[in-house]
Design a protein around this nucleic acid. Structure first.
Lengths: 131, 131, 131, 131
DNA sequence: GTGGTCTAGACCACC
DNA sequence: GTGGTCTAGACCACG
């Protein structure tokens, strides 16, 4: 699994790591029960401090996606995310609003924006289809 | 102009104000040359500290959308945003990626997500069309 | 609010802080909407590092009991805990089992154990009744 | 003797094994002088690493409950636990406090909690009475 | 002033 | 080997 951290991205490092792993989950690169790379490995690979990776894994644990056990490692759970449908749609709407606002501000046509969204989704599904 | 701040929104207050004003620009509620509401008015209306509104206006100045004139208030400029096309698309892509990731995580179908994006765009254009 | 940390207690420091605050909530010493003592204040008072208190507040935030906002402080939410009744009883049962096992091991009579439990509960309710 | 390990239980594996054996002692399933199952047997049955079982048996030795004889296995001693009454009550009080705090937090009535404690104690004594 | 993030490095607990 | 905790101290972001 490839965990990338972009220092120019304003998003906090630990959340970028969270996103990397959530992306790996979405693409099917890791499956429920699988062991995640160790905290130390990710720290070396992404060139960040161990504590920062710890923080990311803690977040994933609070999201119910990961379970870490002392001495044996961190594993993907088989849980579904726990939010109800309303909450989910609220989150999606918030991001969609932001997308529409930025696009309008930069005068990027709606259809082009939608093409970009399709593109992002396709990148996630690319690997999934191979299973 | 209505400036709303939602304390449950994790986005910082000053950026919520920035977004409100950018939204007003996008919908045509304010036009180049128009005076913006005073910092004090916004602070009272949105029930936030004046420093926070100040911070928002400063941000808008940095974006080149607003110019403050000594003693007479803040006015909308007629500037186009200053980023080049590549930068703009990079920002859009980042948001689109996030949208796709969240949607996949919550198992919301792509077409529904796109419908929501169209919706968000339509809300922005609603008022514009009336002009 | 008094936050106490006992170095001889094997429970991690940050969880002892969490318990102190949960205890303050249970006794009614803090109410929904109230501001909690600042992270820095707790750190000084309990003689621990700021980061340790941060960790405790983060945990409380993940439990849905507290909301922290940059620049303004940490506040008690008005949420009810989010577990369903089954989960709650499972947690209670686990502690009850441990209590029964230790008591049996130390040959402490059941009725004495129950008296101690009543005592612990009374300490929590003492202050509440004064409201 | 049945040793069970629940991976969803946050308690460390070796302590879960310790508790299983202490429970067997409390119910009278094993008596002073009896031989305990071999480390290897427990490891196979509970599907854990032999080192983990070793660690559990070591802990039981430290508690004075078990003595290992070279080459012939581990046997239950006829020792009484070595803590003085104050220490014992302190441990009981700590668990009782935790029980009261969780119950209050989850709004479970005190009498129901006590019924659960009686239940836990009854489960321990059930088998004892048959002797 | 508030809380948030990150680093460096130490030590502990568990398997 | 694994993850967990804590410290010290720096710097940033927000109101």
């Amino acid at each position: 699994m490839i965990i990338t951290v972009d220092p120019s991205n304003p998003k906090p490092t630990y959340l970028q790591i969270v996103d990397s792993i959530r992306r790996a989950i979405a693409t099917g690169a890791v499956k429920p029960g699988d062991q995640l790379p160790t905290i130390r490995d990710v720290a070396v690979q992404a060139r960040v401090n161990r504590n920062t990776v710890s923080r990311a894994y803690l977040e994933l644990e609070h999201m119910g996606l990961v379970r870490s056990r002392q001495g044996s490692g961190s594993f993907l759970t088989d849980n579904e995310p726990g939010l109800d449908q309303r909450e989910r749609l609220k989150i999606i709407k918030r991001i969609a609003d932001e997308l529409a606002l930025e696009a309008s501000h930069y005068k990027i046509p709606l259809e082009q924006v939608i093409a970009i969204v399709r593109d992002s989704a396709a990148e996630l599904n690319k690997e999934t289809e191979h299973e």
